[in-house]
Design a protein around this nucleic acid. Structure first.
Lengths: 235, 235
DNA sequence: AATTATCTAAATCTAAAGATTTAGAAATTT
DNA sequence: AAATTTCTAAATCTTTAGATTTAGATAATT
């Protein structure tokens, strides 16, 4: 959670000197903000971020070539908990999408009212995400599709529930592509016992070989019941 | 896209008679809306939806028991292009999450200003999604996690790119858990040829058996290059 | 024209996987 | 106490799977 007793430290990156000045003035009007730096160059910006660890980086995406997107990646690779808010002149849904995918936390159009910009800064500083509604829709629909696929994995009875604890352990190792011998070593039981378990698994999952057992497991939400895992770690 | 020459047909469902009346009046003030029905019962609402095919269903989620969530599912099962906007007294992030997962397109708190409600209706009617910022963040982060996992599948060189066309076809069938004999039949080549291909695949993917080949394929974004698929469909 | 990549195929072999039956020990449930 | 489930194990057998070598026919490239 954000500390409201301290001023928000903001860094500006915009290759257009006029914009840079304008935004700086606009933000300086807010008493709760502190502009720790302003630069026209993405690389210089990176250095300043390393130096000052700002809470928010306000960055223009329409900088020389595709520097903007690369800068987002570079900033996130620093491992600093800085939230990136993108400023853009264009309402390009695909550009926003890519920016967000690379790790930006908000997107504001330059044509928007300045109150919206403050709104966005507050939202992003608060750890939340600020997006145009078109993009909210896009991300949501991505989620909904994934949720649908996920639920498809659970239609009908899930045969995985019929497996015993030991069978789950064996299936876990099968899904890692391990052969009988190694499974026996890992579980410290004989190879014939493993075969017995595997055959029981096949019958329960109604398959005839390990490949289909693994495929069944992966498409039906198999999650190993992390039993003896810690013990095996040493092996 | 929405047809702006026609009035938006809105249906209301809220078990509280006072709320129902209030919302109805509020919406009736808007000249571009047309309330085609208002009911206090979710089941009755379902009937009205079937009858009138409204553009928007404004529904209270806090109805008797968990009827609200079930109603969302029921409405979507009708296969009618109705957009559901949820009204709720509680700012319960998890309830919103589940509502949206089940197919709602927007969520508005009853404590919000009426202008926000109109905003939400417009947004949802426009085919977009309307969400509180907390939820926007949640959905976005879901997306970002997925995107990260996806990109993890492509770190380093992807050995899948070294496969020839035929090898891709064979691998495709391997990932379906099919054995040598059936693969040979499907591709109308001899079993020994299939073995040759499979061995070449193993070497290229640096694995020793089909299970690991399949696992490699699945974790590295393998998408069969849909070549002779149509031909095999008959087999 | 020569080289290389790809697809095809056979033969041979070894190793691994899978099927099936039987059975004892321990833990759980009825 | 009796019955059932689970985990263990062996023996035996059949069937795939996988490794390796060799090689002819096209197709694509240089």
């Amino acid at each position: 959670m954000r500390d409201f007793t301290k001023k928000l430290r903001v860094l500006l990156i915009d290759d257009n000197a006029n914009h840079l000045r304008g935004i700086k003035e606009l933000i300086s009007l807010e008493t709760s903000y502190n502009v720790v730096g302003a630069t026209r160059n993405a690389n210089l910006g990176l250095g300043l971020i390393k130096k000052y660890h700002p809470d928010i980086v306000l960055m223009d995406i329409n900088m020389p070539e595709k520097d903007g997107l690369q800068a987002i990646q570079a900033i996130n690779k620093l491992g600093i908990s800085t939230n990136i808010l993108i400023l853009s002149g264009y309402d390009d849904s695909d550009l926003i999408y890519r920016s967000m995918k690379l790790g930006a936390r908000g997107y504001v159009l330059k044509t928007m009212a300045s109150s919206k910009l403050i709104d966005a800064i507050e939202t992003v500083a608060d750890g939340k995400v600020y997006l145009p509604s078109v993009l909210t829709t896009r991300f949501f629909e991505y989620f909904q599709n994934a949720a649908k696929e996920e639920s498809n994995a659970f239609v009908g009875e899930n045969l995985l529930t019929t497996l015993t604890g030991r069978e789950n352990e064996v299936l876990d190792l099968l899904t890692q592509g391990i052969n009988y011998k190694s499974i026996a070593e890992k579980l410290i039981i004989s190879e014939t016992t493993v075969k017995t378990h595997v055959n029981n698994i096949f019958q329960k999952l109604q398959v005839n070989d390990r490949t289909n057992a693994v495929l069944y497991a992966l498409t039906h939400g198999f999650k190993p019941s992390v039993t003896s895992q810690s013990v095996q770690a040493a092996a």
